[in-house]
Each structure stands twice: as structure tokens, then as C-alpha cells.
Design a protein around this nucleic acid. Structure first.
Lengths: 227, 227
DNA sequence: GAGGCACGTAAAGGTTGTGTAAAGGTGTCG
DNA sequence: CGACACCTTTACACAACCTTTACGTGCCTC
């Protein structure tokens, strides 16, 4: 876990840096906006601590330019306490904002709050079971069922149903289906997807009366529930 | 996007709730720790705003029990300003911490900072929904509704409504509509746009009495609200 | 007020996307 | 090899959709 600290107060920076390091993070420092931005753009840090008052480029400018290409988490630090700065920073894409002077432990707590959030999401493996509107699939057993009755689907049909179940209610285009399910770009006049959907519908209809896969002409297909 | 607000100050809660709602979030409220925890455990909220001082169970206790099973983002609110509370909350697993009194806009900015982060990591694109004067559209599901009633629009009608909703109150010329929606320059004597707008109006009028798409002779169309 | 222009809209016609049966192709397994 | 399961292509039908046509209305100009 590598942190980039951008602060022009060299004494504070070195103190902070030492403290953060003692808490188990690697720290790199920059003391002006230009240098900081350059380091940040190397994309090798997991989190950036960014002072607002900086020589050459101020913190907001650094954040703005950084956000043009990078989603790295940023915590802003500032001596100023006023609301406007805080809001401005957050709306520019900062993840958090700590007014100076701050308790070192709070800084660590906030760093951990953000990294914890990221870890949790990254480590949450994709769901193994999906369910919507009486349709369920289980990835482990590669089985699907409608209204509790098992469906005997071909691999492609299963993959399409899986894709639709990942975002029920969202329109999935044929291009998307072709690329994700068949692994190739959709060619003009290619009717494979239509056929697979047709067959899938037929199998679902054996157990569920209502429409489940709705066609959005010119856009794709959507999984829908009742009503 | 659904927010759960847990705060025992009923007046403040209703004010806040209204403001948050006006920023495009659904809000549910609880006024003590027990009720709040019960609602939170239903797992149907995307973010929780949690006051620290609460009757029955205090905010920390709610957070602790919630974190035993749920990773839902939590922002703590507190009247107390001392470091210890902040750090304690963050270390218990809160995502953020805002001391009362806070600027409402800052709250929204922090809510958005957290949801933005989560969306980026999940690779899920933010919900694109537009709303004006009882007309709403959802890009994901490519669906539209008037006064809550679903509209069954053709692709072109949907695209026109989308264009109008992007700048409610602004005049959109037929040239613009033709180029952006139909993908071609507007030819003389081409009446397609007029027809699409006419049909769109008809469908909207089934559910909304008042005029919504006003013609500006010689200039184009505007989306208008009541009064 | 006559003429021109922009617009509203019903109806007709043409185009395109989609549903699906059937046939053809490919790979696997006994 | 034949049987089988699966995917793709072909072909046709149809419905949804878009555009054009035609006629009507209201506004502006001269």
C-alpha cells in the first residue's frame, strides 16, 4: 500500500510521512503541485494526500488534472476551514477532506476507511447465485430454473440469461451479448443472438406465463418482472 | 439510489430528508437506533447517514452491529466535535464523518464522493436518470414515464425526449434534433421531426394534462413545466 | 385581406428490425 | 460411421417504426 503525500510544509510532511510509515504504509513525498502531479500520474500509488495550498499548482488544479485520467483515491488536506473549499474539493472528485490541524490518528483512520472500502469491493467475488422475477441461476452448478422448475439450457442460452440477470431492468444490446457471450463482434445480418433469445424465451415460457425477456427495438433486450 | 437517515431530531431529519430528496436520492428515516438498525439490516439502502446520539442504541452500537453483516457505506453525523468520536467511528467501519452543524451541500458532496468511488470500483456506470416536470427517463432501462405512468415510446421519441430533458427550458431547434436524433441534416420540407414530436405529445398528454412541449415558431421546441 | 410560411396531424406507404421454422454446419462421443 | 447436441444461416412473415403526403390552422407581412 503506497501513499503519495503532496504538501509544501517540509517539516510537517516529513513528520507525517514518518507517522504514516509507522502505520504500515509506504510513503512518497512531493512539495509542490507540479512535482506532485507528475508523481501522481505515474499511477503507482494507492492513495494520495493532497494539500490545497501548494506552490506552482494548487491542490485543486492538481486534483482536476489528475482526475482527467485517474481514479486513484484522494484525500485533501487544508489549513482553511471554510465550507466552500471542502465542497469544491469533493465536487472535483476528492474522496475525503481533512481540515488542518488534524489528529494523526484521524488521518490514518480516514485512510483506512477509504482503502477498506476499496478492498472490500475488490475482494467481493462475483455472485454465484443470481435471482430475479422467479428466474434463478447458479454459477457453480451451471443450472438455471424458472419458477422452481429446472431449465435445460445450452451453454449460450445460459450465458445470455446470466448476462441479463446481472442487471435486471437494464437494456443489454445485441452487440454486448455477442461480444460477451459469443466472443465476437456482431456482424450485420447475424441472427444468432435472435435465435438464442428465441429459444431461451421458449424454454422460460414453459414455466412462466408472463413475458420475461422484452425486446427494445433497435436497442436490445431487457429482463423484466411482473407488472 | 436509496439513503437511510437515522437521526432522532425529527425536525432536522425531515428538513434534511427533503433536501436530499431534492438532490435525486430516495430517503427513508428512522428516529432511534433500534428502528434504524432494523431498517439498515434489510439491506435495501445504498448509503446510511447515522447520527451518533440516538435513543435506545447509540450510533456506534448501530454501526458495530451493522458491520457484523453488512458493508453498506455509512456516514456518521455528530454534534460533538471532538477527535475521539470521529476516530472511533471511522475505526469501527464508518466511511466518513461529518460534524454538525454542516453545510447541506457538503453532505451531498460527501454522499456523492462515496457513491462515486463505489461505482467506479464496481465498473457500474452511474444511473443515468433525468427528470423534469413529472417526466422522467431512465437511460439504463430505456424507459420513460409521465406522472409515474410508463410511456411506451419508439426509439426516436425516446431520443427526442432525452434531448429535451437534458436542457429543460432551453429551445432545441429542429436542426439539432435532426442531427442528434436522426443522424442527418434537416432537409427542406422534411416533416419527420414534426411528426415525432406530435406523437410524443400525444403519448404524454394521456397522462399529463398541461402542455409540456411548447413550440417556438421558427426556433424549435422547449420543454416546460407548470405555471 | 391575400399570400406566404411554419406548424399540427391523420393517413398512407415504405423500410427495417425482429420472431421463428427449417435446413445446414460443426464438433463430440460411443 | 451414425447419433446427438449445439450453433449458425437462410428464408419468410409480420409488426413496429419512420417518412411522406395531404390538408388544415394560425401567424406574419405587405
Amino acid at each position: 500500500m503506497k501513499v503519495l503525500l503532496i504538501d509544501d510544509d517540509i517539516e510537517l510532511a516529513s513528520m507525517l510521512s514518518e507517522y504514516i510509515h509507522s502505520q504500515g504504509f509506504d510513503v512518497e513525498c512531493a512539495h509542490d503541485g507540479e512535482q506532485g502531479l507528475a508523481l501522481a500520474l505515474e499511477n503507482k500509488h494507492d492513495l494520495i494526500l493532497l494539500d490545497v495550498m501548494l506552490p506552482i499548482l494548487d491542490g485543486f488544479e492538481v486534483l482536476k488534472q489528475l482526475r482527467a485520467t485517474s481514479l486513484v483515491p484522494v484525500i485533501m488536506l487544508t489549513a482553511k476551514g471554510d465550507d466552500f473549499d471542502r465542497i469544491f474539493g469533493l465536487e472535483l472528485g476528492a474522496d475525503d477532506y481533512i481540515p488542518k490541524p488534524f489528529n494523526h490518528r484521524e488521518l490514518i483512520a480516514r485512510i483506512k476507511a477509504i482503502t477498506r472500502r476499496i478492498e472490500h469491493i475488490n475482494h467481493s467475488q462475483p455472485k454465484q447465485e443470481l435471482e430475479f422475477a422467479n428466474l434463478t441461476i447458479c454459477m457453480q452448478s451451471r443450472s438455471a430454473s424458472a419458477q422452481g422448475h429446472p431449465l435445460s439450457l445450452t451453454g449460450t442460452e445460459f450465458a445470455i440469461l446470466h448476462l441479463l440477470l446481472q442487471e435486471p431492468g437494464a437494456v443489454i444490446s445485441k452487440e454486448q451479448i455477442s461480444e460477451q457471450v459469443l466472443g465476437r463482434r456482431l456482424a450485420p445480418y447475424d441472427r444468432s443472438i435472435d435465435m438464442h433469445v428465441s429459444n431461451l424465451r421458449k424454454k422460460i415460457a414453459e414455466h412462466i406465463e408472463n413475458e420475461r425477456i422484452r425486446t427494445i427495438r433497435g436497442a436490445g433486450y431487457v429482463l423484466i418482472g411482473d407488472a
